[in-house]
């Protein structure tokens, strides 16, 4: 007795390293659902409007999505650790005002101004991280607080003034280049690069795997000898850095440093993450799913506009999609337990 090969109940063959894993229908739906939803939405709008599937329009959809897209990358990292970040939009607005004011009013070299604006984002991210790890406050409360702090600092510092006439370096990522007849914004290229980079880190580095593990079972991560506080601090700081980069994209897209930028972008980024199939309970999800989620929101906004539906219906559709996405996630989780 005591034969350990009883473990092999479900698979009689010998252990091998590679080999396909059995996939449940729910898991498959959770994986491919977002992409399917995106393709269906695109097919629908293409059938209703001739202008939808043109290069110029699709390029516009992506360009309109690039700020929320980059914010949503940071949001994905934090949600994977079972956290949430309400402060991302406010941090982004602060970064934008910092870089625009330094460059325009203080005459700081534009490149240095950009660097300081981006670093402001990273510093706020680090503040979130310190509050979540050292003082062990729930991320929801921490980022609700820093949302208000960043918002207030933005308005005090900018004196409620939108900063115009920013130097060319700050709007570089709003410029376009042509591929055939389609104009593509540099900022969208940067967004795709950042998605690719984050995908690589999450999938192929120990840090990335630890991000999933800590959202999954923090106790197991601690017992494995991993410094959870350092890990979370790095995650929140990296997210802040991404918000700082989003500041630059926002300034580039609008051409101004706007203290009122990004006020609903925190919810928009969470929506994109959830639509992309990442679980709000942490430990499960994909950053490329978030890219799909961002595009779903962008396609609905653009498509409904094209076919002449009032913008309030876009909000309605987004709400329904979010609830659908979370429902699918719940079913997938229940199936696995």
């Amino acid at each position: 007795m005591g034969d350990a090969s009883i473990v092999a109940e479900r698979s009689a063959g010998p252990a091998t390293a590679e080999g396909r894993t059995p996939v449940s229908l729910a898991a498959l739906l959770a994986n491919l659902g977002p992409l399917l939803a995106l393709l269906l939405a695109m097919a629908f709008f293409a059938s209703r409007s001739d202008r939808f599937l043109t290069g110029a329009n699709l390029s516009l959809v992506i360009q309109q999505s690039m700020v929320v897209g980059v914010l949503a990358i940071g949001q994905t990292l934090i949600i994977l650790t079972a956290g949430i970040d309400l402060s991302c939009g406010a941090i982004m607005a602060l970064g934008g005002v910092v870089m625009a004011r330094l460059a325009v009013i203080n005459g700081v070299h534009p490149i240095l101004a950009i660097a300081l604006g981006v670093l402001t984002g990273a510093a706020f991210g680090a503040l979130n991280g310190v509050l979540v790890t050292n003082i062990q406050l729930p991320p929801f409360i921490v980022t609700l607080g820093t949302l208000n702090i960043a918002f207030a600092i933005t308005h005090i510092y900018s004196q409620n003034q939108t900063i115009t006439n920013v130097p060319a370096a700050l709007t570089f990522f709003g410029n376009t280049f042509r591929v055939g007849s389609t104009a593509i914004t540099y900022g969208t290229v940067l967004m795709f690069v950042l998605f690719g980079l984050t995908w690589f880190v999450l999938r192929y580095t120990a840090f990335g795997r630890h991000v999933y593990a800590v959202g999954n079972n923090p106790e197991a991560v601690r017992l494995a000898g991993i410094n959870i506080n350092l890990l979370l601090l790095l995650v929140y700081t990296a997210a802040g850095l991404l918000y700082g980069i989003a500041s630059l994209l926002s300034v580039a897209r609008t051409g101004v440093g706007d203290p009122n930028a990004g006020q609903t972008d925190n919810l928009a980024s969470i929506t994109a993450v959830v639509l992309g199939g990442t679980s709000l309970f942490g430990g499960r999800g994909k950053v490329l799913g978030t890219l799909v989620g961002v595009l779903i929101v962008g396609v609905f906004r653009n498509g409904l506009q094209l076919i002449g539906v009032e913008s309030v219906y876009q909000v309605l559709v987004t709400g329904i999609l979010v609830i659908l996405a979370v429902t699918v996630d719940q079913f997938a989780r229940r199936r696995q337990q």
Binding site: S5, V7, A8, A12, A17, E18, G19
Partner: peptide, 14 residues
């Protein structure tokens, strides 16, 4: 340890 699991890529939750 004679643990016969076919794939090391299988998520532990399965």
């Amino acid at each position: 340890l004679n643990i016969g699991i076919r794939s090391m890529r299988q998520a532990v939750e399965t």
